[in-house]
Design a protein around this nucleic acid. Sequence first.
DNA 1: ACTTGGCACTCGCTGAGCCTGAGTGCCAGC
DNA 2: GCTGGCACTCAGGCTCAGCGAGTGCCAAGT
Lengths: 343, 343
Amino acid sequence: MSEERRLAVLRAIVQDYVETSEPVGSKSLLDRHQLGVSAATVRNDMAALEEEGLIAAPHTSAGRVPTDAGYRLFVDRLSSVKPMTGAERAAIAQFLEGAVDLDDVVDRTVRLLASLTRQVAVMQYPSLTRSNVRHIEFVAMGPTRLMVVLIVNTGRVEQRIIETTHDLSTKEGEATLGLVRAKVNALTLGQRLVDAATSLASLADEFEPADRDLVRAIVQSLEDALVEEREERVVLAGTANLARVGTDFPLSIGPVLEALEQHVVLLKLLGTARETSDMVSVRIGHENPFAGLQSTSVVSTEYGSGSELVAGLGVLGPTRMDYPTTMASVRAVATYVSRILAQ
Amino acid sequence: MSEERRLAVLRAIVQDYVETSEPVGSKSLLDRHQLGVSAATVRNDMAALEEEGLIAAPHTSAGRVPTDAGYRLFVDRLSSVKPMTGAERAAIAQFLEGAVDLDDVVDRTVRLLASLTRQVAVMQYPSLTRSNVRHIEFVAMGPTRLMVVLIVNTGRVEQRIIETTHDLSTKEGEATLGLVRAKVNALTLGQRLVDAATSLASLADEFEPADRDLVRAIVQSLEDALVEEREERVVLAGTANLARVGTDFPLSIGPVLEALEQHVVLLKLLGTARETSDMVSVRIGHENPFAGLQSTSVVSTEYGSGSELVAGLGVLGPTRMDYPTTMASVRAVATYVSRILAQ
DNA sequence: ACTTGGCACTCGCTGAGCCTGAGTGCCAGC
DNA sequence: GCTGGCACTCAGGCTCAGCGAGTGCCAAGT
């Protein structure tokens, strides 16, 4: 009973089950794969695989179905990411090139990923905390109201309005504001936002005491932009693909839809990506920490402009999923969207 | 065979069917309502109602189910919007009061509406085209790059960057920019965006010929903000409620999910609200122009700050829906969110 | 020690047949 | 125009038998 053949049997089971959605038996396995052995031998191997917890039978006298552990082994050792054809790559690149701004890039990316994989696509907006500063601008909105505009290298723009005790409409007020603008930009240009905040921490000391509270308020508002978790927006596409799996989906899709609405859950999913060799993370069934997603798998990766990885994207689907192809799509889309954002 | 009694029978059928999700027969109708007549009489009335196309039998020897026309009549003439209790109103107001900014208001509103109605809630972002101008600011981003920031009365902020042939870093450039800023704000403050664009149309003529192309570019970018349909964002909540209807839902939820992803479809739904006496629009089943939504109903209304109605919100659910309660919820939420936005 | 053919057994699925009961339509009488 | 009565219909649920894919195990072969 050779180890290699048993794994070949597991691979064949996974492939057939993904394709047909039906428990696969020893006989039908032989029809579709050249294993070079008899059905009885395959049965023995399957019994051993079941013993190891890699496959399971829904009931006696039915075929076998891979368990979560079986998929895990398949992904880790029995498959490789399926390379995409040049035509596919070109189509992806071309579709993403057409985007006019950041919102459009994100929108196109999720839709593309959903249609490529025919599953639910999830994409996190480029994260502020890991992006870096391109420009910071201050706009007086009234005597004591100031708008702070923060532009980061991914094209995202954040603004917030702060109230000051200073009168900014006076000549002195304007001069102070100009000085703050110059110093802040000099200190932060090109820095990661998290570093920019620390760079600014002692900025107030460089100003005259009368101006310090204004400077502190500005620094505070920039720090706010950092910690504001709520701004970690997530975009979805392809939820209709959940309905497509229809009857063969073990659980109803209700809990899944609920989980998808909790954006904080999705952010956690994308955020806690496991380190793997090719950068694509796969979480299968129960590996998933959230109830309601226990019969789904998540394939995700990070993307970002330049060498900085700034956020996650991925797809979610039934554990019975074509992992090699899905992983290829996720990786390719992440690569191209990163390239677009770098421009 | 009095007309009133026949309508009373229709009302009773709608109410029972909404409550039980099962075709209602003459006998069970008598058990639950005091109609003061015998089952045979009710049967005669039901036969007449069926003749009129207001109810239908899924098959012989089953009870009757209201048709779309039956619901229509019920909504128009047999029901009134159910008043909400003070406690409910207070809870709505309190929940919405907690919002910290516009995004949060929208987010809380859809979630609230979804949980109140236990259906899918849809809300359009306050529309730029019908909002009015609070402030327009120009920020030089570099020698030939200018950022235009538009702030409207709903708190929404739009920005876009334009390239100019002018060198804005010179003294003259700054002076021109200052002049433009002053004139633009003077011309547009408080105006509806659509009017503001026309006000600005001839602005370029007031400037020296050398500056006119700059002014034209700025005006152009503001007009862009108007027509940009893509910016008409729509937010969803409660899609998981679609799964809850489960088996008794005639069609699969796939087509519905697909329609929900097409934001342009949702915008059309919210945009083409019918005029009704109490401002709440109801579209039932086939009245709905979109395939895939033909077995759903949409209850929607407009909301907005002050006297201006700026956008739509509503819910979508199966045609078998508790219309009076749903209409009450939609109306109440629209009222309160309008109040919040007016602040 | 592993593989193979054979064989008995299991058990979910399917379809036919039957029954039940809710519901209807119609009619004759009030 | 309302009512009670009656015959009729038909979807849904139930049982039951047959089928067949699939298994586990065993004895024989290499």
